[in-house]
Protein backbone atom coordinates (compact mmCIF):
# COMPACT_ATOMS: atom_id res chain seq x y z
CA UNK A 1 0.00 0.00 0.00
CA UNK A 2 2.83 2.35 0.89
CA UNK A 3 4.54 1.59 -2.40
CA UNK A 4 1.36 2.43 -4.23
CA UNK A 5 0.86 5.68 -2.36
CA UNK A 6 4.52 6.65 -2.37
CA UNK A 7 4.34 8.14 -5.82
CA UNK A 8 3.84 11.83 -4.95
CA UNK A 9 1.61 12.54 -7.93
CA UNK A 10 -0.65 9.66 -7.03
CA UNK A 11 -0.64 10.65 -3.36
CA UNK A 12 -1.65 14.17 -4.33
CA UNK A 13 -4.43 12.91 -6.59
CA UNK A 14 -5.93 10.56 -4.01
CA UNK A 15 -5.77 13.02 -1.12
CA UNK A 16 -7.15 15.84 -3.28
CA UNK A 17 -10.21 13.70 -3.95
CA UNK A 18 -10.49 12.51 -0.34
CA UNK A 19 -10.04 15.85 1.43
CA UNK A 20 -13.36 17.52 0.47
CA UNK A 21 -15.22 14.32 1.38
CA UNK A 22 -13.79 14.06 4.90
CA UNK A 23 -14.21 17.79 5.47
CA UNK A 24 -17.89 17.50 4.54
CA UNK A 25 -18.42 14.40 6.69
CA UNK A 26 -16.71 16.11 9.61
CA UNK A 27 -18.79 19.30 9.33
CA UNK A 28 -22.06 17.37 9.11
CA UNK A 29 -21.14 14.99 11.93
CA UNK A 30 -20.08 17.87 14.19
CA UNK A 31 -23.35 19.69 13.62
CA UNK A 32 -25.40 16.55 14.18
CA UNK A 33 -23.25 15.56 17.16
CA UNK A 34 -23.74 18.93 18.85
CA UNK A 35 -27.49 18.70 18.29
CA UNK A 36 -27.65 15.16 19.69
CA UNK A 37 -25.36 15.94 22.61
CA UNK A 38 -27.27 19.00 23.80
CA UNK A 39 -30.85 18.72 22.54
CA UNK A 40 -31.70 15.16 21.64
CA UNK A 41 -30.20 13.25 24.56
CA UNK A 42 -31.41 12.91 28.15
CA UNK A 43 -29.65 13.77 31.39
CA UNK A 44 -28.19 10.79 33.26
CA UNK A 45 -30.11 9.27 36.19
CA UNK A 46 -27.06 9.66 38.47
CA UNK A 47 -24.88 12.37 36.97
CA UNK A 48 -27.50 14.71 35.53
CA UNK A 49 -26.32 17.13 32.87
CA UNK A 50 -22.62 16.43 33.37
CA UNK A 51 -23.08 13.34 31.20
CA UNK A 52 -22.87 15.73 28.23
CA UNK A 53 -19.15 16.05 28.91
CA UNK A 54 -18.89 12.38 27.93
CA UNK A 55 -19.73 13.17 24.29
CA UNK A 56 -16.47 15.02 23.85
CA UNK A 57 -14.35 13.25 26.47
CA UNK A 58 -14.84 9.65 25.34
CA UNK A 59 -14.50 10.17 21.53
CA UNK A 60 -11.32 12.18 22.19
CA UNK A 61 -9.95 9.35 24.34
CA UNK A 62 -10.71 6.77 21.63
CA UNK A 63 -9.07 8.96 19.01
CA UNK A 64 -6.01 9.56 21.19
CA UNK A 65 -5.47 5.80 21.34
CA UNK A 66 -6.36 5.10 17.69
CA UNK A 67 -3.98 7.83 16.53
CA UNK A 68 -1.19 6.30 18.56
CA UNK A 69 -1.83 2.85 17.07
CA UNK A 70 -1.72 4.32 13.54
CA UNK A 71 1.52 6.16 14.32
CA UNK A 72 3.07 2.98 15.69
CA UNK A 73 2.13 1.07 12.52
CA UNK A 74 3.69 3.86 10.46
CA UNK A 75 6.80 3.64 12.67
CA UNK A 76 7.18 -0.08 11.87
CA UNK A 77 6.86 0.65 8.14
CA UNK A 78 9.49 3.33 8.49
CA UNK A 79 11.98 1.39 10.62
CA UNK A 80 11.79 -1.88 8.66
CA UNK A 81 11.05 -0.75 5.09
CA UNK A 82 12.59 2.73 5.42
CA UNK A 83 9.64 4.27 3.72
CA UNK A 84 9.84 8.11 3.91
CA UNK A 85 6.08 8.43 3.49
CA UNK A 86 5.53 6.32 6.64
CA UNK A 87 7.78 8.72 8.55
CA UNK A 88 5.84 11.67 7.15
CA UNK A 89 2.57 9.98 8.10
CA UNK A 90 3.65 9.49 11.72
CA UNK A 91 4.84 13.11 11.95
CA UNK A 92 1.58 14.34 10.44
CA UNK A 93 -0.55 12.52 13.02
CA UNK A 94 1.39 13.57 16.13
CA UNK A 95 -0.17 17.01 16.62
CA UNK A 96 -3.83 15.92 16.33
CA UNK A 97 -2.97 12.92 18.53
CA UNK A 98 -1.53 15.16 21.22
CA UNK A 99 -4.62 17.36 20.86
CA UNK A 100 -6.92 14.41 21.47
CA UNK A 101 -4.97 13.37 24.56
CA UNK A 102 -5.04 16.93 25.89
CA UNK A 103 -8.81 17.20 25.32
CA UNK A 104 -9.29 13.88 27.12
CA UNK A 105 -7.28 15.01 30.14
CA UNK A 106 -8.84 18.48 30.45
CA UNK A 107 -12.47 17.47 29.87
CA UNK A 108 -11.96 14.53 32.23
CA UNK A 109 -10.79 16.96 34.86
CA UNK A 110 -13.86 19.15 34.36
CA UNK A 111 -16.03 16.05 34.66
CA UNK A 112 -14.24 14.65 37.69
CA UNK A 113 -14.48 17.84 39.72
CA UNK A 114 -18.29 17.88 40.13
CA UNK A 115 -18.90 14.12 40.00
CA UNK A 116 -15.97 12.54 41.79
CA UNK A 117 -15.11 15.59 43.85
CA UNK A 118 -11.59 16.06 42.50
CA UNK A 119 -9.86 17.56 39.47
CA UNK A 120 -7.22 14.85 39.38
CA UNK A 121 -6.15 11.64 41.10
CA UNK A 122 -3.14 9.46 40.42
CA UNK A 123 -5.06 6.30 39.66
CA UNK A 124 -3.88 3.90 36.96
CA UNK A 125 -6.28 5.12 34.24
CA UNK A 126 -5.60 8.83 34.64
CA UNK A 127 -1.86 8.35 35.02
CA UNK A 128 -1.53 6.13 31.94
CA UNK A 129 -3.51 8.66 29.89
CA UNK A 130 -1.15 11.40 31.05
CA UNK A 131 1.78 9.21 29.96
CA UNK A 132 0.17 8.90 26.50
CA UNK A 133 0.09 12.71 26.28
CA UNK A 134 3.76 12.87 27.25
CA UNK A 135 4.59 10.21 24.65
CA UNK A 136 3.08 12.44 21.97
CA UNK A 137 5.08 15.42 23.24
CA UNK A 138 8.25 13.31 23.45
CA UNK A 139 7.73 12.04 19.91
CA UNK A 140 7.31 15.56 18.57
CA UNK A 141 10.36 16.82 20.45
CA UNK A 142 12.51 13.97 19.10
CA UNK A 143 11.18 14.12 15.54
CA UNK A 144 11.69 17.88 15.26
CA UNK A 145 14.72 18.17 17.51
CA UNK A 146 17.36 17.95 14.77
CA UNK A 147 18.46 20.51 12.26
CA UNK A 148 18.06 17.99 9.45
CA UNK A 149 14.52 16.74 10.06
CA UNK A 150 15.18 13.16 8.89
CA UNK A 151 17.78 12.57 11.60
CA UNK A 152 15.07 12.59 14.25
CA UNK A 153 12.92 10.03 12.46
CA UNK A 154 14.58 6.87 13.72
CA UNK A 155 14.74 7.67 17.45
CA UNK A 156 11.24 9.15 17.34
CA UNK A 157 9.82 6.00 15.72
CA UNK A 158 11.60 3.82 18.29
CA UNK A 159 10.04 5.87 21.09
CA UNK A 160 6.62 5.32 19.49
CA UNK A 161 7.09 1.55 19.48
CA UNK A 162 8.31 1.44 23.06
CA UNK A 163 5.27 3.48 24.09
CA UNK A 164 2.86 0.96 22.57
CA UNK A 165 3.01 -0.94 25.86
CA UNK A 166 1.07 1.95 27.39
CA UNK A 167 -2.02 1.31 25.22
CA UNK A 168 -3.19 -1.97 26.81
CA UNK A 169 -2.40 -0.40 30.18
CA UNK A 170 -4.77 2.48 29.46
CA UNK A 171 -7.49 0.19 28.14
CA UNK A 172 -7.36 -2.46 30.86
CA UNK A 173 -6.20 -0.38 33.85
CA UNK A 174 -9.80 -0.14 35.02
CA UNK A 175 -10.11 -3.95 35.03
CA UNK A 176 -6.69 -4.84 36.41
CA UNK A 177 -6.54 -2.46 39.35
CA UNK A 178 -8.89 -0.62 41.66
CA UNK A 179 -9.21 2.79 40.06
CA UNK A 180 -11.38 5.81 40.71
CA UNK A 181 -12.23 5.82 37.03
CA UNK A 182 -15.13 3.51 36.14
CA UNK A 183 -14.90 0.59 33.72
CA UNK A 184 -15.64 0.67 29.98
CA UNK A 185 -19.23 1.45 28.96
CA UNK A 186 -19.06 0.84 25.23
CA UNK A 187 -16.17 -1.47 24.32
CA UNK A 188 -16.98 -4.34 26.68
CA UNK A 189 -17.63 -8.02 26.18
CA UNK A 190 -21.28 -8.11 27.23
CA UNK A 191 -22.39 -5.15 25.11
CA UNK A 192 -22.61 -1.45 25.92
CA UNK A 193 -23.99 -0.51 29.35
CA UNK A 194 -25.13 2.81 28.02
CA UNK A 195 -28.59 3.85 26.90
CA UNK A 196 -29.02 4.00 23.07
CA UNK A 197 -30.09 7.65 23.35
CA UNK A 198 -26.67 8.40 24.87
CA UNK A 199 -24.71 6.04 22.64
CA UNK A 200 -25.86 7.86 19.49
CA UNK A 201 -24.29 11.27 20.24
CA UNK A 202 -21.15 9.45 21.39
CA UNK A 203 -20.73 7.61 18.09
CA UNK A 204 -21.61 10.63 15.94
CA UNK A 205 -19.02 12.74 17.78
CA UNK A 206 -16.49 9.96 17.29
CA UNK A 207 -17.17 10.03 13.53
CA UNK A 208 -16.80 13.81 13.53
CA UNK A 209 -13.42 13.59 15.25
CA UNK A 210 -12.24 10.72 13.05
CA UNK A 211 -13.03 12.59 9.83
CA UNK A 212 -11.50 15.78 11.21
CA UNK A 213 -8.39 13.76 12.05
CA UNK A 214 -8.15 12.35 8.50
CA UNK A 215 -8.47 15.85 7.03
CA UNK A 216 -5.74 17.24 9.30
CA UNK A 217 -3.46 14.27 8.57
CA UNK A 218 -3.81 14.81 4.81
CA UNK A 219 -3.12 18.51 5.24
CA UNK A 220 -0.05 17.88 7.40
CA UNK A 221 1.32 15.15 5.13
CA UNK A 222 1.11 17.33 2.04
CA UNK A 223 2.72 20.16 4.01
CA UNK A 224 5.58 17.89 5.13
CA UNK A 225 6.11 16.65 1.55
CA UNK A 226 6.29 20.25 0.35
CA UNK A 227 8.71 21.10 3.15
CA UNK A 228 11.07 18.28 2.19
CA UNK A 229 11.03 19.52 -1.38
CA UNK A 230 11.75 23.03 -0.12
CA UNK A 231 14.75 21.93 1.90
CA UNK A 232 16.08 19.93 -1.07
CA UNK A 233 15.76 22.98 -3.31
CA UNK A 234 17.40 25.19 -0.69
CA UNK A 235 20.30 22.79 -0.39
CA UNK A 236 20.65 22.81 -4.18
CA UNK A 237 20.56 26.60 -4.24
CA UNK A 238 23.31 26.96 -1.69
CA UNK A 239 25.44 24.52 -3.69
CA UNK A 240 25.19 26.28 -7.03
Amino acid sequence: MFDYLANPTRFRKITAALLPVVVMVSAIAFALGLYLAFFASPADYQQGETVRIMYIHVPAAWMAMLTYILMAVAAIFYLVWRHPLADIGARAMALPGAGFALITLLTGSFWGRPIWGTWWVWDARLTSMLILFFLYLGYMALADGFERAERGSKPACLLLLVGVINLPIIKFSVDWWNTLHQGSSVLRLDGPSIDPAMLKPLLVMALAMLSWFIAITILQMSRLIMQRRVSNLEARESWS
Binding site: P42, A43, D44, Y45, Q46, Q47, V51, M54, I115, W116, G117, T118, V121, L180, Q182, G183, S184, S185, R188, S193, I194, D195, A197, M198
Partner: peptide, 17 residues
Protein backbone atom coordinates in the same frame (compact mmCIF):
# COMPACT_ATOMS: atom_id res chain seq x y z
CA UNK B 1 -9.92 13.66 55.37
CA UNK B 2 -11.10 13.40 51.78
CA UNK B 3 -14.09 11.69 50.15
CA UNK B 4 -14.40 11.06 46.40
CA UNK B 5 -17.40 9.56 44.65
CA UNK B 6 -16.91 6.59 42.33
CA UNK B 7 -19.63 5.70 39.86
CA UNK B 8 -20.16 2.66 37.67
CA UNK B 9 -20.14 2.48 33.89
CA UNK B 10 -23.93 2.47 33.45
CA UNK B 11 -25.49 5.50 31.82
CA UNK B 12 -29.24 5.92 31.28
CA UNK B 13 -31.99 8.53 31.54
CA UNK B 14 -33.85 8.76 34.86
CA UNK B 15 -37.09 7.53 33.26
CA UNK B 16 -35.43 4.33 32.12
CA UNK B 17 -33.97 3.79 35.59
Amino acid sequence: NNVLAKHDETYMPAEVA
